[in-house]
Design a protein around this nucleic acid. Structure first.
Length: 402
RNA sequence: GGGAGGGUAGCGAAGAGGCUAAACGCGGCAGACUGUAAAUCUGUUACCUACGGUUUCGGCAGUUCGAAUCUGCCCCCUCCCA
């Protein structure tokens, strides 16, 4: 099976500008392609993860990826798919975030010997001269056309600043720049990037007369059509200090039945033949698939050891055993009697005592496997010395030691 | 620059002087049922030293026994006209 067919079979390809050309280029391993990453936070999240996996697949087939970090475009903020104005980041934030991204990417993509490049568009964008840019590039864009782009339409009602309106031009310029300086002939991105990407191919055509190609990756949506990676507590991060390997594992372990196989296909490197086998499995084996999904992804992000730990911890916990080895733990400075509610707040299991009180009253808290119904329970110092395991709801465990 | 309409809890949206810690929907959390899923049902959802107390309805200053609700100024947003 060719690379392109495999990508298609895995459900990764959303839109392409020229299917035949793209197919030929990437199957032959001849493409130099780029994918942009906006440095809006100091860690990549699981939406980026999918993109990195995609990059990896292409790299394995001999293509050369360029990870373009948007140190320049980040200063503008992409309005695509957004209903609100983005917070404008400072240069310091952006540069810090870029550095963090780079570190995380190196775990997935092989950057040795020029097999892949990591470039920050701040290099050229921040030094652009307004007048020059207007004459050089601005002349190639039709405002009428830009306004008709889907990504701006929804913003026409709510308001779109000139700053954001220029994002498309900057992104297009990136592609043009990479095309000229690095021989980059293809851009990939999330499906919400389609119009920005087309802007680039058209700019290249106008400036150089050459063809460049764009392909979008299917957005990672769950069966309800919502973007994956968002939880009530925020995004699911790849940085283990922001989302622990255990939580990461649990996130994928708990996906909808309807999504499990789809995600295995899109996100893992498990051969398609094996996945097709799983498709025939009886529905009672759905949990095996979810475990596999969670384990594989955790392994890719955090390494085999941490993935195994996360898996073991989860298995133990949900089979009634207590494996406190890999449980999130709070260590107190000193052992002294403490009210349960205070402890819940301290461990961040609840945001306020009021909520803790409610949980206890509704029977949502257990301490060392004993369901608690006394709001004023005090945890004794000697128990803290031994270590106390708090269970909140069905799935959240936390150990406290002093 | 001119005119109109707005800013209420995580979000959407009621309330138009005391009965309002603020309807309703979504989301979140918990309980039941399950498979660590979905659906469904139930409870709950400002904070605290909790049968009581404290601080909330863009900000500030007033009117009043009493203000999310009335007045003035300020900030922000949207729409229409230029």
């Amino acid at each position: 099976m060719t690379l392109y067919d495999e990508l298609k079979a895995r459900g990764l390809i959303a839109q392409v500008t020229d299917e035949e050309e793209i197919k030929n280029l990437i199957n032959a391993g001849k493409a130099t392609f780029y994918i942009g990453f906006d440095p809006t936070a100091d860690s990549l999240h699981c939406g980026h993860f999918m993109t990195l996996v995609f990059m990896k697949r292409l790299q394995l087939a001999g293509n050369r990826p360029i990870a373009l970090i948007g140190g320049g475009t980040g200063m503008i903020g992409d309005p695509s798919g957004r209903t609100d104005l983005r917070k404008v980041l400072t240069i310091e934030d952006i540069d810090h975030n870029c550095a963090c991204f780079k570190k995380q990417m190196e775990r997935f993509i092989d950057f040795s010997d020029g097999k892949a490049l990591i470039i920050n568009n701040a290099e050229w964008l921040r030094n652009l001269n307004y007048i020059d840019l207007l004459r050089d590039v601005g002349a190639c864009f039709s405002v009428n056309k830009m306004l008709s782009a889907e990504c701006y339409k929804q913003r026409m009602e709510r308001g779109l600043s000139f700053l954001e309106f220029n994002y498309m031009i900057m992104q297009s310029y990136d592609f043009y720049y990479l095309h000229e300086h690095y021989g980059c002939n293809m851009e990939f991105g999330g499906d919400d990037q389609w119009s920005n990407m087309l802007g680039g191919t058209e700019l290249i055509r106008k400036k150089t007369g050459k063809d460049a190609y764009a392909m979008t990756i299917t957005l990672l949506l769950n069966s309800e059509g919502k973007k994956m990676g968002k939880t009530a507590n925020g995004a699911v991060w790849l940085d283990e200090n922001k989302t622990s390997p255990f939580d990461f594992y649990q996130y994928w372990r708990n996906v909808d039945d309807a999504d499990a196989l789809k995600f295995v296909k899109m996100l893992t490197f498990i051969p398609l033949e094996e996945i097709n086998e799983m498709e025939k499995w009886d529905n009672s084996r759905i949990n095996e698939i979810k475990d596999l999904l969670a384990y594989e992804l955790t392994k890719m992000v955090h390494g085999e050891e941490k993935a195994t730990n996360a898996r073991n911890a989860a298995k133990a916990l949900f089979s009634g055993e207590v494996d406190d080895e890999n449980m999130p733990t709070t260590t107190l400075d000193e052992a002294k009697d403490i009210g349960l509610l205070d402890l819940l707040v301290l461990t961040k299991l609840v945001p306020s005592k009021g909520e803790g009180r409610r949980l206890v009253m509704q029977g949502g808290i257990s301490v060392n496997k004993v369901k608690i119904n006394d709001v004023n329970l005090v945890i004794k110092a000697e128990d803290l010395n031994k270590g106390v395991i708090i269970k909140k709801g069905k799935k959240t465990f936390h150990k406290v030691v002093a």
